[in-house]
Amino acid sequence: MSSVRLLWRLTAMNVMTTIEYRGAFLVYMLNNVLGPLISLLVWLTVSEQGVALPYTRSQFVTYYVLLSVAAMLTSTWIGAFLVEDIRLGNLTPWLLRPAPGILSYIGNNLGEKAVKLPLLLPLVAIVAVVFRHDLRPPTDLAAWGLFLLCLPAAAATAFFLDVTVALLAFWLDDVRGLLRLQVLVGAFLSGRFVPLELFPPELASFSLVQPFRYTLSFPLEVLTDALSQRELWLGLAAQLGYPALLYGLYRLLWSRGLRRYSATGA
């Protein structure tokens, strides 16, 4: 129970710090909107050529508008910070406290997102207004319910995936390159550029099972795609299974890694 209270305090603290830098975060949010917008415009060109596509014009618009919000809510940036904390010994203060060290990183993640959301929504609203004729937000309440269930699970998947890679810093000298590679490949395989459903058939079976699908794409698919019952249940199992698996992996790497951790004053 005290962990929950601590997490609440840490989140509130991060909200306050983030508000101080709201200008910088507004710039990040602008980026968050521009990226999907560029992908959307490219796909609209493809669909305007009269090419037969699995997605209609309004499906593309709906997908990318929802994506710009969902991508922020499931985003993670902690890896690079965690690596530096391990390398420079800044982990030490957290090891002395009677609470799991990961809480400060979770608090940072939640706190920043709480400030980013009100900055992001007006920008997404502008895009939505520009494309209002093609925007078809799903009206199925059950789909929205599933989406809201899957989104935190996707955020947890992304977060613990990031943490797991970063924890390799206990063993390796420089994992920053690995983290950047993960971001690069992850952006593609999570459907940020191209909806996974449009991947070529040779990649389809792979794209369905790999973890990055469950960091962003799957909640969107629940909302916008017509998934069959079978696909839905399998996907839901993976959506809940991946974060559980990655959490276990984090616990393992964390306890093993701490035995190797050495820092001044530790």
Binding site: E20, Y21, G23, A24, L26, V27, Y28, L30, N31
Partner: peptide, 9 residues
């Protein structure tokens, strides 16, 4: 000065 990431735009 507060917006330290204008470059990211």
């Amino acid at each position: 000065v507060q917006v330290d990431n204008l470059d990211a735009l």
